[in-house]
Computed example of a mutant assay.
Amino acid sequence: MSAATGGGPILSLDTLVRLGRGLRPADPPRRLSVPDGMTAPLGCDAVAVPARFGPLVLPRLPRVGCVYADEAHWWWLVPSDSDYALEWPSPARYATGALVPHTPRLIHRPDGTFPYTPPIPLYLALCRIMGTTPTWSRVVSA
């Protein structure tokens, strides 16, 4: 079909390939690595927050696992599926598989062999800082 018959322009395979390449992200996501000597038997996900909130979260946590940072975000390693039945408060983002857009640097490594920050205290600290009510505390209407 041609544009004249209402079918739109015909694109060659080369054109489609070039267009497809232009739609891909410049950098594929990377998995945050667990430091040498540590094990992650529960798998790893990550919770990211804008960097300005990072220093506010740290003192509110009873235990801090591995924390990674760059200029824009801080990421906390949490056990896989820590998003189950939780709505992490915006602007926090949950990254399944601890996949992040680029490789930040490790800024905190806990003592011991487990890299995790406990997800419930992290969730509550983020809700407090973001001014959000935890989802299990919200009133449910019928």
Rank of each mutant, 00 (worst) to 15 (best):
20 G>F: 13
107 I>P: 06
120 I>H: 09
82 S>M: 04
54 G>I: 10
67 V>S: 01
137 S>W: 08
57 V>A: 13
51 A>L: 06
29 P>H: 03
47 V>Y: 04
130 M>E: 02
140 V>Q: 13
80 S>C: 10
142 A>T: 03
74 W>A: 06
37 G>Q: 14
138 R>E: 14
110 P>M: 11
40 A>G: 05
128 R>L: 14
91 P>D: 14
110 P>R: 09
75 W>N: 03
61 L>G: 10
100 V>F: 11
116 Y>D: 04
123 Y>G: 01
123 Y>W: 14
21 R>Y: 06
78 V>Y: 01
26 A>S: 12
37 G>N: 12
131 G>F: 03
12 S>A: 10
32 L>A: 06
104 P>L: 05
128 R>I: 01
77 L>M: 11
13 L>E: 10
62 P>H: 02
52 R>T: 08
139 V>C: 07
68 Y>L: 05
13 L>P: 04
33 S>V: 04
76 W>C: 02
4 A>Y: 00
117 T>Y: 00
121 P>W: 06
18 R>F: 12
109 R>T: 01
125 A>H: 01
128 R>T: 08
70 D>L: 05
15 T>A: 06
122 L>E: 15
55 P>Y: 03
53 F>A: 01
25 P>F: 10
48 A>L: 11
111 D>P: 04
139 V>D: 13
61 L>N: 09
126 L>W: 08
83 D>N: 13
2 S>I: 02
80 S>R: 15
43 G>V: 02
81 D>Q: 09
129 I>M: 09
108 H>W: 07
135 T>I: 15
138 R>L: 15
137 S>A: 13
3 A>N: 13
5 T>N: 06
62 P>R: 05
29 P>T: 12
30 R>C: 09
103 T>Y: 06
36 D>T: 09
46 A>V: 12
134 P>A: 10
71 E>I: 14
77 L>N: 13
132 T>L: 13
58 L>K: 08
1 M>H: 09
128 R>S: 14
92 A>K: 05
51 A>E: 05
139 V>I: 11
127 C>Q: 13
12 S>Y: 13
104 P>N: 08
138 R>V: 05
21 R>F: 07
123 Y>H: 11
98 A>N: 00
36 D>W: 12
87 E>F: 07
85 A>E: 14
40 A>Y: 11
48 A>H: 08
103 T>P: 01
82 S>I: 02
46 A>T: 11
21 R>H: 08
42 L>P: 00
86 L>K: 04
71 E>W: 06
70 D>S: 06
65 G>T: 02
76 W>G: 03
51 A>G: 05
38 M>C: 08
27 D>T: 08
105 R>T: 10
53 F>G: 01
31 R>S: 02
8 G>M: 03
136 W>I: 07
8 G>I: 09
49 V>F: 01
19 L>Y: 02
37 G>R: 12
120 I>M: 14
11 L>G: 02
99 L>Y: 10
63 R>N: 15
37 G>C: 10
93 R>Q: 05
102 H>W: 10
